[in-house]
């Protein structure tokens, strides 16, 4: 027997209702994770975390710092290292990518 829609479900769009119907019961409370607005605003989570932990770094400095360390040094290292890895993927892809069947062995999906 199909479940009766509750009050909040009445205000949902058809697409949302379909998504709810298809979702695993445990996933229903977390469907907002896939919404456009959530994805767009997710940037604020690491941004706030970054600012918060950088400030905390001022109050809890490293016990054994290296010569280059300062209160937010690891924030900078994390940001720079990650950006370098991801941005290097553009030229590396051009340099190293070939057709999927380049070696003549891959026949899967």
């Amino acid at each position: 027997m199909a479940k009766k829609p509750n009050k909040s479900q009445n205000s949902m769009s058809k697409a949302e209702l379909k998504e709810r119907a298809e979702a695993h019961p445990l996933a229903v409370p977390f469907l907002w994770l896939g919404h456009e607005k959530t994805i767009k605003n997710f940037i604020f989570v690491p941004m706030i975390g970054l600012v918060l932990f950088s400030i905390l770094g001022f109050f809890f400095p490293l016990h054994h710092p290296a010569d280059w360390d300062f209160f937010a040094s690891y924030t900078l290292i994390g940001f720079a290292a990650y950006s370098f890895v991801v941005l290097s993927a553009w030229p590396l892809f051009k340099l190293l990518s070939r057709d999927e069947d380049y070696y003549g062995e891959d026949h899967d999906d």
Partner: peptide
């Protein structure tokens, strides 16, 4: 405290880079 804070700095810095990129 310093180990937790600086490890979180590294991870948050990297996560922010991801969202920004």
């Amino acid at each position: 405290a310093d180990h937790v804070v600086f490890q979180m700095q590294l991870l948050m810095g990297a996560m922010f880079a991801f969202t920004l990129l």
